[in-house]
Amino acid sequence: MKAKDVLYGVIGCGEHAVRGHIQPGLGTGLSLAGVFDPVRENASRAASLSRTLVTHFVSAQALIESSEIEAVLIASPDIHHPDQLLAAVKADKHVLVDKPLAINAIGMVKVREALRLADRKDLVVSSCHPRRFDPPYIWMKRALPRLIRCFGAVVSVHLDFSYHKPQAMWKHRRSLLLDHFPHEIDYVTFLLGEARFRATRLHDGHDAYGVAGVRADGITFSFSGTRRLDQTVYPENIRVRFERGEITINTKTGEGWVNDHSNSRSETLSVQPTDYDVRFRRLMGNFVRAVRGREKSYLTRLDLVVNTESAVALAHQEHFNSLRR
């Protein structure tokens, strides 16, 4: 017997919500039932993607409180995430909230409260870290044991991206570190496992950021990224350094390079490149299956806290150190 679709509502119906969540969510067991966006054209565009009748709500709170809605996707501007997350959990809704979950310490308090309450109510709270579902990033994760046997232990991980210039004016006042560091630190955790770490902000602006740090296991990491391209493209690079070699992958093309330090030889490799449809469809599929109790959410409560708390600290205080705890 086919399970009923999970009826969900969307708060914030901009381009990312449409392309990264609503379209990939079609056919996964999610059914769009409600929308709210202060820009009516955005809400109408999102609603037009649904195969069923969609309610246009007059406010985010009205959507959250509606008995029609079982789950809420929060894709509003970052500043609203903590309050909307907490309100949704109080209203007994499962939540998929875009990152960052908070942008300051006050918001972080609300996020922690929401997660504690979600635990008591047995509600799913998830977020958007699609690299865990992306072919080249998965390839590196699966190949890691074999690479360690060939080249020795992991020494460092470097992640880099180069995106198009932000268009929305509010994004010109946004910390790129707050927006993107959660992605990078989440992938390092996915790749290597959980570990406490300390990190330092090297630079942060609306169109560039850099962070460097070290984990409790001694593995160092560095992240850098810019949003200065005129074209709407998303090239990303993964570089993992081992004791006796290193692997670099261009995730957009799937091209890679293997450098063997023992014999000074280099060779190319080819992996499946980034597939945005696949990674977001898998992410949305995990959310609906977690809501139905068929599998666990791909992010733990600890993942959500660490990814957000460390980004907030680095954006406001320059340093983050969980090694002292």
Score class of each variant (00 low, 15 high):
residue 289 R to G: 06
residue 159 L to N: 09
residue 319 H to Q: 13
residue 113 E to L: 13
residue 139 W to G: 03
residue 10 V to E: 14
residue 71 A to P: 00
residue 151 F to G: 07
residue 320 F to W: 15
residue 322 S to F: 11
residue 12 G to W: 07
residue 43 A to E: 05
residue 119 D to R: 15
residue 191 L to C: 04
residue 14 G to D: 09
residue 91 A to I: 02
residue 140 M to F: 07
residue 64 I to Q: 06
residue 179 D to R: 11
residue 233 V to I: 13
residue 121 K to F: 10
residue 178 L to W: 07
residue 98 D to E: 15
residue 95 V to T: 10
residue 318 E to H: 12
residue 173 R to Q: 13
residue 76 S to Q: 04
residue 153 A to N: 09
residue 84 Q to S: 02
residue 272 Q to P: 00
residue 16 H to I: 12
residue 284 M to Y: 03
residue 80 H to N: 10
residue 129 H to L: 15
residue 51 R to P: 02
residue 119 D to N: 13
residue 90 K to C: 10
residue 196 R to D: 15
residue 60 A to C: 01
residue 45 R to F: 14
residue 221 F to Y: 04
residue 136 P to C: 06
residue 283 L to R: 07
residue 5 D to N: 15
residue 164 H to I: 05
residue 44 S to F: 05
residue 189 T to V: 05
residue 277 D to I: 07
residue 320 F to H: 15
residue 151 F to P: 04
residue 82 P to V: 04
residue 154 V to Y: 02
residue 278 V to W: 10
residue 153 A to C: 00
residue 179 D to T: 10
residue 242 F to A: 06
residue 319 H to E: 10
residue 72 V to H: 04
residue 289 R to F: 03
residue 112 R to N: 09
residue 314 L to T: 08
residue 1 M to S: 15
residue 144 L to K: 02
residue 202 L to F: 00
residue 283 L to N: 05
residue 51 R to G: 11
residue 182 P to Y: 02
residue 26 L to D: 02
residue 219 I to Q: 01
residue 74 I to V: 14
residue 139 W to Q: 06
residue 284 M to P: 03
residue 157 V to C: 10
residue 172 H to T: 12
residue 16 H to R: 11
residue 141 K to F: 07
residue 219 I to K: 06
residue 292 R to M: 07
residue 63 L to T: 00
residue 297 S to V: 04
residue 280 F to R: 05
residue 156 S to Y: 00
residue 14 G to M: 06
residue 173 R to P: 00
residue 160 D to W: 11
residue 311 A to G: 03
residue 16 H to S: 14
residue 132 R to Y: 12
residue 158 H to V: 08
residue 192 L to C: 10
residue 155 V to L: 01
residue 115 L to F: 05
residue 269 L to N: 04
residue 26 L to H: 02
residue 316 H to P: 04
residue 61 Q to P: 00
residue 62 A to Y: 02
residue 311 A to R: 03
residue 88 A to Y: 06
residue 141 K to P: 00
